[in-house]
Design a protein around this nucleic acid. Structure first.
Lengths: 340, 340
DNA sequence: TGTTTCACTGCAATCGATTGCAAAAGCATT
DNA sequence: AATGCTTTTGCAATCGATTGCAGTGAAACA
């Protein structure tokens, strides 16, 4: 592997001059520079980034920690992020923290040891698991931007979709369709000011509709969601609509309703959350809420690169809330008048 | 950020001794070593990998190039690979080469400049785009392992699923179900000895069934697949089964058949390829062929790490063929006797 | 011709680790 | 106490870049 020294010998100059020439410095004679550049090009010289990183104390690398790729929401996000990171001239070091984010701490340590210039941390359902270490790292000057909300997120830069508003939109959508008897299959997580379930409930409440306690489930797995559906459909009166915490649950719900001989949306409407690509493929296509994920990824990455370049060094941490929109498809319809 | 020198001062020894102590070398007195390790731990010292990488001429980083994450096949693969890479103690640098692998060359250059220890290159439909550069890089000693087949793949280590056998299994499955009038919606790519379409055709031929030319489409997009379906269903006699090149196409096909009022599998059977997670979610659940992706990822990563550690330095490039299995679900059934 | 100026170029330090080799220290043996 | 042998430690080179500072040479001016 060629180094500066080798090019220097060929050009009959010192390695310093080669370094300057390749960097396009005006400190080197134009003729000399062109000659050096030509030689370097001929020889296929490429800078050794490792050495460069050590000297410059920066790596042009951004670390990304995301929980997993099995949940189809994340690949979509990671794809967008990777594209933006690449466009910004950084390399991406990817760490999957695991479904329960159990590797989050290790990932952070690893990224720190590798001296990445900044970290994008996508928190999952468990919030910020390695919060102590992350806080220390952040305080010691490592730029970190979070995606998702967790208690204490306000101390950092973070980006999130406006899930609360999305949930309100769903609530209004269902009310407009005449639903009054609505069930929730949520998750046992609470995202504070961005919580889907509580926003949904309070929006309904503000319009005079309340959720029956036996129509409100918090499920931690697909299996639990199936059980919830089985119990829900035997309550009387049966709910005419189900709000599922996320598309992946909504899909399971639809499947189970179908298995039970109920038609969606004729007998029961189902609405999800996230706008997964698959949501439009299932039958019936899922009514859902989502936000423009590219916009979200762009805000995410830009905020980090701004922090890295120091332009925002002194600025207070801020949150970026990306709007969500309702995407009505086939799984939601008018409330059935006579639940059979 | 603390460095060896700092710990050395605190311990009253030289930085060399600290380095050795932390590496667990026996060249340092046990008592001294324990004292140093304790101090380093108290101070939260972590080695600077960048400096270490420069000195050791290795980065403990593996580069992964994959086309994209929009096609749901890749996230599944990337997840498995990332897990294996992590378990092996390497970091992962991810590059998405784009749907048409247009960034493949840039990604390779970047990985080389960052001196990754080895490269996992997942080729897409376009084969190896940056073949000249990749070949040169490989010859110059960079370990590279490929996933997927392309002309010339035999010169490298590569891993692939046994698509040819999978296609044969589909052929036999359809024959057993009594299908004789079968259509193909393939892709205009040819994967040589692992080609799905040609294996499918020849397996059928060897059992006395041939494909009508007007029942054989090569489509490059979902839209083209839809058009193909529209034309297929108006041919007489209408085919009783469709073999789709991949699950994502099969799903589109099902959707379009449904829209045309045809029932799957009662009127037409549909079989895909890849065993995407979604395949079991769509209705009807898709009969498909897949291989154990974890096994494939493991073989992929292990081969690379073996090359890196030099154990296989002299060994000839070899291919690893991962078996595929048929997964019969609901989208395939007995041939309809009287196509309406 | 001697001096000043300015455009280039090279020397050498630096980034933070690892490691061969030499030196020092410890200990036993005579 | 002198010698020899081990064990332990430190010096200094090295990895391959970047860059402040000093030095060179030529042109310009007196």
């Amino acid at each position: 592997m060629l180094k500066l020294e080798d090019i220097a010998k060929l050009a009959g100059v010192s390695h310093s001059t080669v370094s300057r020439a390749l960097a396009g410095s005006t400190l080197v004679n134009q003729a000399t520079r062109e000659r050096i550049v030509a030689i370097a090009h001929d020889q296929g010289y490429q800078v050794n980034q490792v050495a460069r990183n050590l000297k410059l104390q920066q790596t042009n690398t951004i670390g990304l920690i995301a929980p997993e790729l099995s949940n189809p929401y994340y690949p979509k996000l990671v794809q967008s992020i990777a594209n933006r990171v690449g466009e910004s001239g950084y390399s991406l070091q990817l760490h999957l923290s695991g479904k329960d984010q159990e590797n989050e701490l290790d990932s952070l340590i690893n990224l720190r040891n590798n001296r990445v210039d900044g970290i994008l941390l996508v928190t999952g359902e468990h919030g910020l698991v390695a919060s102590e270490y992350a806080t220390g790292l952040h305080k010691s000057g490592m730029p970190i931007v979070f995606m998702g909300w967790f208690p204490g997120a306000e101390d950092f830069d973070f980006v999130t979709g406006d899930d609360a508003d999305g949930a309100c939109q769903i609530a209004r959508h269902l009310l407009e369709l005449g639903h009054k008897n609505i069930a929730i299959i949520g998750k046992p997580v609470h995202r504070g000011p961005f919580d889907r379930t509580s926003s949904f409930v309070s929006e309904l409440a503000s319009r005079g509709v309340s959720i029956d306690a036996e129509h409100h489930y918090e499920v931690a797995s697909d299996e639990a969601a199936i059980l919830a559906v089985r119990r829900l459909i035997h309550t009387a009166p049966r709910p005419t609509a189900i709000f599922a915490y996320q598309d992946s649950i909504a899909m399971v719900v639809c499947k189970e309703l179908h298995a039970a001989g109920l038609r969606v949306p004729d007998d029961i409407s189902v609405i999800g959350f996230d706008d997964l690509d698959i949501a439009s493929f299932v039958s019936p296509a899922l009514t859902t809420v989502g936000c423009h994920i590219d916009a979200m990824a762009e805000a995410f990455v830009n905020r980090l690169t701004d922090r890295i370049s120091g332009g925002l060094a002194a600025a207070q941490p801020t949150d970026i809330i990306v709007p969500t929109v309702l995407i009505p498809r086939q799984s939601s319809g008018h409330a059935s008048v006579t639940p059979s």
